[in-house]
Amino acid sequence: MINVNGISKSFGDVVAVNNVSFIVKDGEITGLLGPNGAGKTTTLRMLTCYLRPDRGGIVYDGLGTESDSIAVRKRIGYLPESAPIYADMIVLDYLAFLAEIRGCGAERIRQTAALCGLNEVMHRNISELSKGYKQRVGLAHAMIHDPDVLILDEPTSGLDPNQIIEIRNLIREIGKKKTVILSTHILSEVEATCDRVIIISSGSIVADDRTENLQRARGGEKRISVTVGGTDFGGLSESLKKIGEDMDIRESGEGELVSALVTYRGDRDLRPDIFNMAVRKGWVLYELKQEQVSLEEVFRQLTIGGENGQD
């Protein structure tokens, strides 16, 4: 378990992280989400012992990042943002250096290289690798000692869509056994990989919950898109108003079919009622789709105006 207790960090007059506290349970994939400059990287740097908090502390199962720094670093695998790896080394030499300093054997180098898909570039100079391969070397760096905790700063930045899916699958796979903390400003990444999301804005936590709870609690709104044939918008709107109260009904789309976007609050699912209504009225139902308010909207609501901080 990782206990982050009221950490703060300033660079000169700029407060990068302000009184941030959270607890990460074992085996949880936690996403640190925030706009650029929100303080995600600074938070991760404090979690990995690279930066010292000005106030507060971080404890990994009883080991403090300041009092037991070496023991904590042994337990962590860290992929820094844009993986600043020694460019003049070949991949094999770099992994061998890491294995030696982490106290792992040659077998672990082979396993990690296979896991990260590095076998074909083992004898290539790191400076000659594509961004995607450099990122993989960074992941190998983080995973070579099979750490209990994996901390990844923007793990998919600069990767192509296929590589992004591969890395996300890899993170999910690792997250079944290990604790993973990753930072990103890509919302779909959090939705695709994380069990829990912590949203940071201007150095402070503005939301911390399970991904689905955050969507539900914050949004609390559902949206149904209906497209029918055989009536006009007025008729559709009148009929929809009879199904539920406190609904916002707007016309959407153009053409021969009539489309409406129905926004409402509450747990009730209105789709069966809309379907039955269409059957009763003899309308042809072309589309009936419910959407939850996306994390993107939650993110925008929470972080608006907080994009001038330190990353």
Binding site: R45, T48, C49, Y50, I70, A71, R73, K74, I76, Y78, P80, S82, P84, I85, Y86, A87, L98, I101, R102, H141
Partner: peptide, 14 residues
Amino acid sequence: HSGSIEILMTLPVT
């Protein structure tokens, strides 16, 4: 300059 100090200083070394 390259940022690799972050790599080095997060390894278990003083």
